[in-house]
Design a protein around this nucleic acid. Structure first.
Lengths: 111, 111
DNA sequence: ACTATACATTGATGATCATCAATACGTTGC
DNA sequence: GCAACGTATTGATGATCATCAATGTATAGT
């Protein structure tokens, strides 16, 4: 089941801006939780640095040293978090990063 | 036991820069894991937005609605992660944010 | 010294999560 | 239709973690 289609609706404001209320803190925490895993970070960076800005899931399993279901699970989490998009082409699934989403999280740490 | 005095030694490079190796991904993930909690995010923003750039622990317990030990635990995690500094003055403990540390994490999400 | 206060630590518990084996689903080619 | 392949889902398990009550450790005031 999808974790949350719009975790951290966050449009503006940084942690150093104004004190976060409980709701905003929960959404932001959920967003960072997705980044708080080595496998997901590697997946994100592998897709981000892939040749045409996209990567096939078939090329991500072996280098990570995890089972196919585990990699698929992490990719789904990244998609659900809005950090990646998934596009099926035939038997393969291709992933691209969503820069705006990454920027949103980065801005949450702005001074 | 302190989690790690220098988690994410990270000096340079973003997730979109070059593919992360297992070690770097682990350090980065550990750093984000500290941010991946609502209470810690609220603590961070409360300290960041505090009047003189510092906040007394005594003023952080009630607004969070958590027990004193729980708040103390989260503050310790933030200090161990290098995101906050702690200074004891008499009976009180005063916290300040470490902007450089926050910037380090922000840069890890740079395009 | 004694008491009260502020904070940290310990120990225990329930919840969340990463992981894999097994299985299901959808697509391609024969 | 059938077999092979790439991917997603299910179910189970061990590990990690947030939380609190109880306790420990200082410091300040009387």
């Amino acid at each position: 089941m999808a974790i949350d289609v719009t975790p951290f609706a966050g449009c503006c404001g940084s942690v150093t801006d104004t004190a976060l209320d409980e709701g905003a803190a929960g959404e932001l925490a959920a967003a960072f939780k997705v980044l708080a895993d080595p496998v997901r970070l590697r997946l994100l960076s592998m897709v981000a640095t892939a040749p045409a800005g996209e990567a096939c899931a078939c090329d991500l399993v072996l280098p990570l040293g995890r089972s196919q279901p585990t990699v698929s699970h992490h990719l789904t989490m990244l998609v659900d978090a809005g950090l990646l998009t998934r596009e099926r082409r035939g038997k393969w699934a291709w992933y691209r990063v969503v820069p705006e989403r990454l920027a949103l999280l980065r801005d949450a740490l702005a001074p």
